[in-house]
Every structure is written in C-alpha cells, then in structure tokens.
Design a protein around this nucleic acid. Structure first.
Lengths: 149, 149
DNA sequence: TTGACTTGGTACGATTTCGCACTAGATTGT
DNA sequence: ACAATCTAGTGCGAAATCGTACCAAGTCAA
C-alpha cells in the first residue's frame, strides 16, 4: 500500500478518536459528578437492546475487556442503578437487570443532554448524521469481523 | 427535540465510540508492549504537523486535559522518543521535539500497521473513507467550536 | 465417567486518565 | 510601577482501564 491511501485511513481513525474524545467531554459535562460515559452507555444499552444480558455480552457489545466490564457493573450496582442475578441456566454467569432508579437516571441524563444535541443539530443537521451512519456502521462491522478472526 | 432525531445522534456517538475502541485495539496489537495509541499519536502529530509545539498545544489538539499530556510526554521522554527544551520566548512553557529514535519508532509502527490497513481496505475501500471523512471533519469542527465557547 | 478443554467471571497489580490545587512567569489596567 | 488577573506546567490523589493469572462451571469425546 502506497503512502497516500494509508494516510487517509490514519486520518480517518485520528478523526474518530478525537470525535470520541469530544463527545465524551460533552456527555460527561451533563452527567452527575462521578458518572462517566461508560456507565451511561451500559444503562442505555440495557434499555435499548434488552435487559438480562450477561456481563460478557455487554463487554463484547462495547468492545472492552471483560475485567473492565466487571468493574463498571460493580460501580453501577453499588449505585443501585442495576442489579445482577444468578443465571439458573448457567451457574457460571450472571444476568444484569436495570433497576427503576437506573431507568430514571438514564432518562434524566438524556433530557439534560438534549439541549446540547439541539445546539449541535443547528450546525450539523440530522441529514448529515444519516449520511454517515450507514458507512460507519459498515466500517464497524468489517473491523469487528476482522478482530474476531 | 423529539425522541427520534435525538436517538440518531446518540447512535452516531455510540458508533464513533465503538470505532475508536476498535481502532485502538487494532493499533495497540501492533505496537511494542507498553506503547499505547496515545504515545504513537503524539509522535505522529509531531511529524505531521510540526515539531516544537508546546505541551498545551498538543493537549488541545488531542482534546485531553493538560495533566494527561504532561504524563504522556513524560513517558515518551523517558523512552527517549522526544525531548523537551525550555522556550526562550516564554519561560513558563516548553517546546517538544521528536528525536531520531522517535522518528524511527513512528515509521516502524506505521509499517507494521500497513498489513492491517490493507486487509481493511479490501472490505472498506478508500472511496468510503473519502466519502465520510469530510463530514466527520465538519462534525469535529462544530463540536470543537461549541466546546470553546 | 472422567480427563482435556472451553467459557464466564473475578482478584490483583500496573498504568493511564483526569480533576483539583498550586507555583512561576506573563499580561493588563490604572 | 504594580496589583489583579491570566496562562503554562506540574504534584498529587482518585478512579478507570486493562493484562495476567486464577477458579468454578459447562462441554466434549472416548
């Protein structure tokens, strides 16, 4: 691969990294102190996708090591936002459930983020989001598959 | 803002976060043990943009707190990949220079990443990169400007 | 059934990342 | 000139993240 295309891929990943950083700051500025995007994302995922997933499931969804997920879940459970129950089907594993408090927390967080999104939407319209999302999702799928192999 | 558009923005940031995670893993698998993307990125930036930047400059470029950059630079300097000199124009600040070893390290890293990029390019062509890059850059600019205000 | 192997989860320690508080040097207004 | 303010950088402590090693439960094959 010649230098020029390689550079384009580097630039893409660089841009993605900085955007992840920027969105992280934006989100965390609105979350209560001590709450991080990692916590919010798990709660959001439990509602969006479904309750009752295993920790390993969640780790894979977010592409983080399972030890990281153990730690994140412990924090969420200590805060009463989730609860874990043993999985009767497989005694090695747990299942994670969001609590009433967890649901409320997630909804409040979303509400307090909306002003930021609205401001953002003025300069980066929904149509642009829809323009890039499929391509990014495709990239994710490719990288995901490659990683698994 | 109704729920539906809000969800699209959430999905976008979720996708960006996971992609950042995936590219991080991909890069770090090729870097020597102990070397992280944060280190590589700084070296790359010093070559791409220019030597002789101040730590604060770099922190802003990567959107990380300045204490984080202090730590990253200390690690790089301990490894002999950069050196810092006092800035005669402003005695509060330093300037960061990449060393010969640093340059070599960065070039080696890029070479060892190329196979991954080539494999990626088979399924996610350069044209797709070029399709999303301008939009992502625009999003970055908008968020950057918003943050500064 | 039993031994080899795989899978889900955690304990532990190292490192990164980050917020807060502080110092030294620069800048601004009067 | 000089006090108030701002800026660059670091020290320190807390938390997140992650790799390694480990244990318990499940699977598979002979």
């Amino acid at each position: 691969m010649p230098d020029e295309p390689a550079r384009a891929y580097f630039t893409l990943f660089n841009e993605i990294g900085i955007l992840a950083q920027l969105s992280r700051s934006m989100f965390e500025a609105r979350l209560p102190p001590g709450m991080l995007v990692s916590h919010f994302s798990v709660l959001n995922h439990l509602i969006r996708v479904q309750d009752g997933r295993t920790p390993l499931d969640l780790a894979r969804s977010f592409q983080v090591p399972k030890t990281t997920m153990t730690h994140t879940l412990a924090t969420l459970e200590a805060a009463g936002l989730i609860e874990t129950r043993l999985n009767p089907d497989d005694k090695r594993s747990k299942r994670v459930w969001i609590t009433v408090d967890g649901r409320a927390f997630r909804n409040t967080a979303i509400d307090s983020l909306k002003p930021d999104l609205e401001r953002l939407a003025e300069r980066f319209p929904l149509s642009s989001v829809e323009a890039v999302l499929p391509t990014l999702a495709a990239l994710r799928q490719v990288m995901d598959a490659d990683r698994a192999s």
